[in-house]
C-alpha cells in the first residue's frame, strides 16, 4: 500500500528537493526535463516483467531446465510407486504436485540467480522503483514460467497415466496453488541467493511454509479426479485462496527487507 502512495507522492517530493538545493539546481531542473513525471508502479512492473519474459524467450534457460526436470520426476515416480491400477488415483495427484513443486523450485532459484549473476538486481535497485514493484514483477514472471511448465506437463501426465486431468477444475486448482507457491518462493529465492549453501536453503525455507498449499492442492486435485462433488472440494480451494491472499500481502510488504545490503 505504501508503494502506491509513494509513487503518487513523488512529484511534490521532486519539487521540494529542487527548492532545497537552491539556485544551482536550476541547472538540474533544465537537465532533468528529460526525466520528468515519475513512472507509475504498474508501468515499472510491466517493464521488469517484459524484460524477464524477453530474456527467457531468447534463452529458454528457465523453462527448459524446469520442463526436463519435471518430466524426469514423473518418470522416476512411475517406477517408485508402480503407478497403475488402483494405486493410481490415490498417488497420482501427489506425484503431479511434487513434480510441479520440485521443477518450480528449480525455476525460482534460476530466475533469481540470473539477477544476481551480473549484478542486475543492483541495476534495478538504482532505479527509482518501489521494492514492491520488483517483487510483483518477479513474482508474476515466476508464476508465468511455472504455469507454462504446468500447461505442458499436464497433457503429458494425462497421456502417461491415462487420467482426465485436463479439466477447468484442475486448471483452477493448479493456478491457485501455483500463485501461493510462487509468491512465497519469490521472497525466499531472494533470501536464499545471498546465503551460504544457497541451493539447499531455498527448499529448506520454502517447503515447510508451503505445506498447506501442497496438502490443499493434492487433496483438491484428488477430489476432482475422483469425481467428488464441488461442495467437498471448495474448502480446499478456499484454503488456497486464503493462503494466496495472505502471502501475497505479507511477501509484498517484506520484500524490501530482503533485497539490497
Amino acid at each position: 500500500m505504501r508503494a502506491f502512495r509513494r509513487s503518487i507522492d513523488v512529484t511534490p517530493g521532486l519539487g521540494r528537493s529542487f527548492v532545497a538545493m537552491g539556485d544551482g539546481l536550476t541547472a538540474a531542473i533544465s537537465i532533468s526535463r528529460a526525466a520528468v513525471g515519475p513512472p507509475s508502479f504498474f508501468r515499472q512492473v510491466g517493464a521488469i516483467l517484459w524484460k524477464d519474459l524477453a530474456v527467457e524467450l531468447r534463452t529458454k534457460d528457465i523453462l527448459s531446465s524446469m520442463l526436463v526436470f519435471g518430466l524426469i520426476v514423473l518418470v522416476i515416480f512411475n517406477f517408485a510407486f508402480e503407478l497403475r491400477g488402483e494405486n493410481l488415483i490415490l498417488v497420482a495427484p501427489g506425484v503431479l504436485w511434487v513434480a510441479f513443486v520440485f521443477a518450480g523450485i528449480l525455476g525460482l532459484g534460476r530466475s533469481m540467480a540470473q539477477e544476481k549473476e551480473r549484478s542486475s538486481m543492483e541495476g534495478l535497485l538504482l532505479c527509482p522503483v518501489d521494492r514492491g514493484a520488483i517483487f510483483v514483477a518477479k513474482m508474476l514472471g515466476n508464476l508465468i514460467f511455472i504455469v507454462i511448465l504446468e500447461a505442458i506437463t499436464l497433457p503429458i501426465f494425462a497421456a502417461f497415466f491415462n487420467l482426465p486431468v485436463l479439466t477447468p477444475g484442475v486448471g483452477l486448482i493448479v493456478v491457485l496453488g501455483t500463485l501461493g507457491f510462487a509468491s512465497v518462493g519469490t521472497l525466499f529465492a531472494a533470501i536464499a541467493i545471498n546465503t551460504r549453501a544457497r541451493e539447499v536453503m531455498l527448499p529448506i525455507l520454502l517447503f515447510p511454509i508451503i505445506v498447506p498449499v501442497i496438502i490443499a492442492s493434492v487433496k483438491a486435485t484428488a477430489f476432482v479426479l475422483d469425481g467428488k462433488p464441488w461442495a467437498e472440494i471448495w474448502p480446499w480451494v478456499n484454503l488456497l485462496i486464503a493462503f494466496d491472499v495472505i502471502f501475497l500481502a505479507v511477501c509484498f510488504v517484506t520484500f524490501e527487507y530482503v533485497i539490497g545490503e
Binding site: 521532486l14 528537493s17 532533468s32 526525466a35 551480473r118 543492483e122 541495476g123 538504482l126 522503483v129
Partner: peptide, 22 residues
C-alpha cells in the same frame, strides 16, 4: 526520499548493469 534521490543519480561502475540477452 529514496526515489527522489535515485532520480538525480547516474551510476557507471565495473558492473555494467546490462542484460546480455537484450
Amino acid at each position: 526520499n529514496g526515489h527522489d534521490v535515485r532520480r538525480l543519480i547516474g551510476v557507471v561502475s565495473h558492473n555494467t548493469y546490462l542484460y546480455d540477452d537484450l
